[in-house]
Simulated assay, not measured.
Amino acid sequence: MSRSPGARRGRARLRAVALIGIDGSGKTTQAHRLADALTAAGRPATYHRNAGGRRWLGRLAHRLGRPDAQRLVGRSGMLAVESVLRWLAIALALISCLATGRVAVMDRYSACQYASIRAHGGQRWERLARAGYRMFPRPQLTFLLTVDPAEAYRRIEQRGTDHESMRYLTAADTAYRTLPEYPTFVVVDAGRPPEEVSRQIQAHLAGWLGSSADGRDGRLTDGRDGRAPDGRDVRSAVVPGPPGGEPVPIGRLSA
């Protein structure tokens, strides 16, 4: 008798989870929370911030009297530096988790670089980036945190550590949605309060991991017996995927 996809998924080893999305979508907050939740559930996880150095370049540009990183090193130079630094960060994160056996919770992954290249209008660099990043395995789950660019802009300005233009945030939002990998992403409404976003992500993972993370031992959900806070059974419920995609667990949509 064949086993259900959910049953097979529940016994598989979770090796890597990635959180991606435009700046201001809450990736870092949610990645930290997810690493903590998985560790508490008995699946030791490590947070990895796979930054491309654009914020650092921006600060350097300001110190040298330039408005942003692109004005400092040029668009091609910025994309080249960003691609190399992110590649190195991902490689080190994967090596670390391979050596330790811990789950890698990735704050940004290769898709972030492809989206950045598209948003900056450097499409000819995307082919080179994909060739370089091809060696990296695809995470078993990639959560795309979506938020209105205007809300993302408000959050960035509020934290006051960097700056992004509305034009870039809008272009990046479009870039993520047009990537060929988009149908494989678990799309999460990140415009909600952080606690609700965490519940969406963790409820989806509870379904993927099966009974071992159904809320009884690791408390990955706020409900009981593998149910989300509103009573839905996240282990088996599915909804239609994006055009051309496969049906996905209900965690893909906002609650």
Results as ranks from 00 to 15, higher is better:
Thr146Met: 12
Pro44Arg: 09
Ile22Tyr: 00
Glu82Ser: 14
Pro67Ser: 04
Ala129Met: 00
Val17Thr: 11
Leu88Pro: 03
Leu94Ser: 02
Arg227Asp: 04
Gly223Lys: 09
Ser76His: 15
Arg49Ala: 05
Ala111Phe: 15
Ala35Gly: 05
Ala41Gly: 11
Gln202His: 13
Phe143Ile: 03
Glu181Gln: 13
Ala93Thr: 12
Ala31Thr: 10
Gly244Trp: 05
Ala131His: 11
Gly101Asn: 10
Thr161His: 12
Asp217Tyr: 12
Pro180Tyr: 08
Asp189Thr: 07
Pro242Tyr: 06
Asp230Gln: 12
Phe185His: 09
Gly77Lys: 09
Pro44Ala: 02
Leu14Glu: 10
Trp208Phe: 15
Val187Tyr: 02
Val188Asn: 04
Ser25Ile: 01
Glu195Asp: 11
Tyr109Glu: 00
Gln70His: 07
Arg216Val: 10
Gly10Cys: 09
Arg54Pro: 04
Ala18Glu: 05
Leu72Gln: 03
Gln70Met: 03
Arg154Gly: 01
Leu92Tyr: 05
Arg177Cys: 08
Val186Ser: 10
Ser165Asn: 01
Leu205Val: 03
Ala35Asn: 11
Ala203Asp: 14
Gln30Ile: 00
Val239Leu: 15
Arg124Tyr: 12
Val188Pro: 07
Ile90His: 02
Arg159Asp: 09
Ser25Tyr: 05
Leu14Met: 14
Gly160Pro: 07
Met135Asn: 06
His163Gln: 11
Arg118Lys: 13
Gly207His: 12
Arg192Asp: 04
Ala31Phe: 05
Ile201Tyr: 03
Pro242Lys: 01
Gly74Tyr: 03
Leu94Thr: 07
Ser211Ile: 08
Ile20Asp: 09
Gln30Thr: 01
Gly226Ile: 06
Gly52Ile: 04
Pro229Glu: 09
Asp233Ile: 08
Arg192His: 05
Gly231Val: 03
Glu196Gly: 04
Ser254Val: 07
Asn50Leu: 03
Pro247His: 10
Ala69Gly: 05
Trp208His: 15
Arg43Val: 13
Ala18Met: 07
Arg159Thr: 07
Gly215Lys: 11
Asp189Phe: 06
Ser212Met: 07
Gln200Lys: 02
Thr29Val: 02
Pro193Glu: 01
Glu196Leu: 13
Trp125Glu: 13
Asp148Ser: 00
Gly244Lys: 08
Leu72Ile: 03
Glu246Trp: 14
Arg138Trp: 07
Pro194His: 05
Ala129Asn: 02
Pro183Trp: 09
Pro242Met: 06
Asp107Thr: 00
Ser96Tyr: 10
Ile90Leu: 01
Ser2Trp: 09
Leu14Phe: 10
Val197Ile: 09
Ala16Tyr: 10
Val248Asn: 08
Asp162Trp: 08
Leu144Cys: 02
Leu179Lys: 13
Gly74Ser: 06
Arg63Ala: 13
Leu72Pro: 10
Thr142His: 02
Arg59Gly: 15
Ala45Leu: 01
Tyr114Thr: 12
Gly122Phe: 00
Met1Gly: 14
Leu145Gln: 04
Val186Glu: 10
